[in-house]
């Protein structure tokens, strides 16, 4: 169950992060990605008896992200309706990631897996602080000179990409946890080094 829930969340984020536009339509549609995330969180919530709010946020994003099917998420940052909309989606994504981290922290706690708990909380802080700065600085780009704006876009894209790869790797790790807290000792010994190569 755990495996399936986090695998859905993982693939959901892949759909959200990767954009391939054929003609004008995104062939990896974000709403489907958010739906996968929603149903993944629902599974995990149900299994552990959690009430993680990420479920509602993901469901909201299923509908809110419908226009992204037709908007090219270019890094051309300028003042327009679509850029404000995309930033709004970005902020809600941050909220969604926050709840997912909370979900992962609760699971690690429940499994009494200290190393996983440690890794998740560290990643939680790094992710939120980095993404906060990237999202906070983004609107400054509309007032930047061309040269500075270019550097900003390049750096924020690299930071965003790297941090989200770490985030995906963590989701993948959770998706490979075996069900039930009983066999946690065997899991940590085996899978820790293997997962490490993903980072």
């Amino acid at each position: 169950m755990l495996y399936e829930g986090f695998r859905k969340i993982f693939w959901g984020f892949i759909l959200v992060f990767v954009e391939i536009h054929l003609m004008v339509i995104d062939i990896l549609p974000d709403p489907i990605g958010y739906y996968l995330i929603f149903s993944g969180i629902r599974l995990v919530n149900h299994y552990f008896g959690f009430t993680n709010k990420g479920k509602q946020v993901a469901l909201g994003l299923v509908f809110l992200s419908l226009p992204t099917l037709f908007i090219q998420n270019q890094s051309v940052i300028q003042m327009s309706g679509s850029s404000i909309y995309l930033s709004l989606i970005g902020i809600i994504n941050l909220v969604l990631a926050f709840y997912l981290f909370q979900l992962m922290v609760s699971i690690a706690k429940q499994r009494e897996d200290d190393s996983l708990h440690q890794r998740t909380t560290t990643m939680f802080k790094i992710y939120m602080v980095t993404m906060f700065f990237v999202t906070f600085l983004e609107p400054f780009s509309i007032n930047m000179t061309e040269g500075l704006k270019m550097w900003f876009i390049v750096f924020s894209a690299i930071f965003g990409l790297v941090i989200n790869i770490f985030f995906l790797a963590l989701l993948l790790k959770y998706s490979k946890l075996s069900d039930g807290p009983s066999d946690r000792s065997s899991y940590t010994a085996e899978s820790e080094p293997a997962i490490g190569t993903h980072d």
Binding site: M79, I84, I91, F132, T135, F136, P139, I142
Partner: peptide, 14 residues
């Protein structure tokens, strides 16, 4: 608090 700061950043820059 972070979300609020980001929103203010938007309003200020706009």
């Amino acid at each position: 608090a972070g979300v609020l700061i980001i929103v203010f950043s938007w309003i200020g820059n706009y």
